[in-house]
């Protein structure tokens, strides 16, 4: 009986300790999805294509540019933003962090483009979410 209690005590304690230990983030580079669509709007819109290319500049450099198209099954207010990453996977800052609100009507397909703010951007993540503005 006492052994039983002690066992339970140890188990509880180990749970506690485990809870306190910090979760170690993965240190290596994670392959990110190019595209994230929030579940709230998956029912109403679909991303039909997502293209990227590098636009060459007069000095010989180039900038990453993406284009994507969205089709809606019903009138939808949504927002989108692109986050850019460099070779090491670090975020490349743009003008701001805000999302762009867009409204897509039923059966409408809209095309959007975005250009990276710096030449060092090599990858990106496009995020589509519900527009929650009141």
């Amino acid at each position: 009986m006492t052994r039983m209690k002690a066992l339970i005590g140890i188990i509880c304690l180990s749970f506690l300790v485990a809870a306190c230990a910090p979760v170690q983030p993965k240190r290596e580079y994670v392959q990110r999805d190019d595209l994230k669509v929030d579940p709230e709007i998956r029912q109403s819109v679909q991303v039909q294509e997502l293209l990227d290319k590098r636009v060459s500049l007069p000095s010989g450099g180039s900038l990453l540019r993406i284009q994507f198209s969205v089709q809606a099954y019903q009138d939808t207010n949504m927002e989108w933003a692109v986050t850019w990453f460099d070779e090491d996977g670090m975020v490349v800052p743009g003008v701001g962090e805000g999302y762009r609100p867009v409204r897509i009507l039923r059966d409408q397909t809209r095309f959007f483009t975005a250009t990276a703010p710096q030449e060092k951007a090599v990858s990106y993540q496009l995020h589509l979410r519900e527009d929650r503005a009141p």
Binding site: V55, L63, G94, V95, G96, G98, A114, T115, P117
Partner: peptide
Amino acid sequence: AADNAVQDLLS
């Protein structure tokens, strides 16, 4: 407005 202008200007 600034984001729009910068993207357009750079590209």
